[in-house]
Amino acid sequence: MSPLNIKQGSTSHSAYDLRDPNGDVIEQHTLAVLVDNESGVLARVIGLFSGRGYNIDSLTVAEVDHAGHRSRITIVTRGTPQVIVQIKAQLGRIVPVHEVHDLTVEGPSVQRELALFKVSGKGDARIEALRLAEIFRANVVDSTLESFVFEMTGTPEKIDAFADLMRPLGLREIARTGVAALSRGA
């Protein structure tokens, strides 16, 4: 069989290379998904991610409009630019999904996560943990003679950094809420 011998782009060029030049770049995006708070809606969203092999770095959900039964799901995900576009389109296809916002591209946004840390220890380690907590503006929400529970709100990076510091000082458990995010400005 003779292959085709056609001059490359003899009349025109596609705007795109068939191979996406950014095809290997992995980006992290924060998506806000507004949904009807009906039974199964979270399963639909999670099932979409697992069924199509997308990643979830973090996911939070709660009803934000009790009268309108609307929930807001905040998903931090990662993938190539093409995959991110797909994720948004696939989310948009789910019937109870009303809006999908990509906070990473729709302008600046604030992202916050709440975490609780249980740190046990005595003596210097205990004092050091409390001192660091102050520096990080973490609150003490429970204490015994041998332990603290700190509460901290911040970016995921800040929470990671605090956890790293607490580890050698007796960190026992962490509970994190996952990211909640809003766009900045009016």
């Binding site: 795109y16 068939l18 996406d20 093409q82 797909q86 389109a89 696939q90 948009g92 296809r93």
Partner: peptide, 9 residues
């Protein structure tokens, strides 16, 4: 919309 740019750009 999810068919657009899914496999071929």
């Amino acid at each position: 919309a999810s068919s657009l740019n899914k496999v071929i750009r």
